[in-house]
Design a protein around this nucleic acid. Structure first.
Lengths: 194, 194
DNA sequence: AGGGTAACAGACTTATTGGTCTGTAACGAT
DNA sequence: ATCGTTACAGACCAATAAGTCTGTTACCCT
């Protein structure tokens, strides 16, 4: 049953939700329809289950966990994103940002699933904001920085660069992206630089 | 025939390529299968035609044309993006960035179509780079700015924010995004601020 | 007026989809 | 050993997909 979820997320990620049939998943596992519909009510309920467990875990592990218990928020965020992009780059068959892809796919089609997906984005963003705020009280970040705005900006730019990196020259894109981010961060990492 | 393309792009945008059937398009136009397959060989060829004409025109009109013949590149870009986001926001049924959605959908599924879509991105990016370079020679932008990198950053962040703006509070997101961009631009609009 | 072609109409085919339903193997409890 | 429940197998169904094919208009040309 857990293997169904794992394989399900894998195939949904590669081919998209609507473009992946239950049969595709079952074929890969050499299982039958009966097995699937014994554990899950429908394809939709199946995906929601996956989103709330596997997908959330994945995002948390990739983008939130690496931020915990570190000083110097800006550098921590920068390293986290850079490592993530490097992983995506080395993964010779990368399909973009899992969460971003699904948000894109379900937009305007399934509001319920959309809300679950956006919840995950919110969790990520809240973690970023919290980290940035802490950075301000700890004296790492200039007080005039808008934590909410910066978090929004980070999330959106990351989602975008992951979409762009599906083409060939992902190495250059990553370099440029990180470089620009570093430049931007420079303007706010010392409170004296106002 | 042109109406088929227009309606086709409209529905592909709203529901995605794979989730829009030829019948859906034809039903909306009260046309028959015969009409469609008289003009187009297949659904794929149909989309490619749309991408190269209608989709390209749309992107050009939205994001490239407003940049032409203006001084002060950074402000021009900022205004262009802000106006575009405002339009998306007022459009009470917005489905994200057309081009970005398709790139997301076809990634890993149809390399040929992908190449056509990425071509459009390239055109946009080249236009940005050219504008930034001109801005440097005209003295609007600091010489140490990496035009290529900045263009990459602009494209990716725009694609990301459009994906995020599909949820409710798009007004706030737009404001935060533009605000952050403005802050970033401040660091490079005077050559003396190195 | 008549012939020919461009521009469609729409029934039909084949493949695939999500989902149902009946059947059955394994297995612990009594 | 038997019973009953869990965990599947897989045939089956209705809906929908892209694409084909045989018509049938409408209209221009001569």
């Amino acid at each position: 049953m857990n293997s169904i979820q794992t394989t399900g997320l894998e195939l949904f990620y590669q081919n998209g939700y609507y473009n992946t049939s239950i049969d595709d998943i079952l074929k890969k596992l050499s299982l039958s329809k009966g097995a699937f519909y014994y554990h899950f009510q429908s394809k939709e309920e199946f995906f929601i289950t996956i989103a709330q467990t596997n997908l959330f875990r994945k995002v948390y592990h990739q983008l939130i966990a690496p931020l915990e218990g570190k000083e110097d928020p800006l550098n921590t965020i920068l390293n986290c994103l850079e490592n993530d992009l490097k992983r995506a780059e080395e993964n010779f068959l990368d399909y973009g940002f899992v969460l971003g892809n699904f948000i894109n796919e379900f937009n305007g089609k399934n509001p319920e699933i959309m809300s679950y997906l956006l919840d995950i984005v919110t969790v990520w963003k809240v973690n970023l904001v919290t980290l940035l705020q802490k950075g301000k009280t700890d004296g790492y970040i200039s007080r005039h920085v808008d934590s909410e705005g910066l978090a929004t900006y980070l999330v959106s730019s990351y989602m975008g660069i992951r979409t762009l990196m599906v083409e060939g020259n992902s190495k250059q894109l990553r370099y440029q992206y990180i470089q620009q981010l570093r430049q931007y961060f420079k303007t706010m990492d010392q409170p004296t630089s106002v």
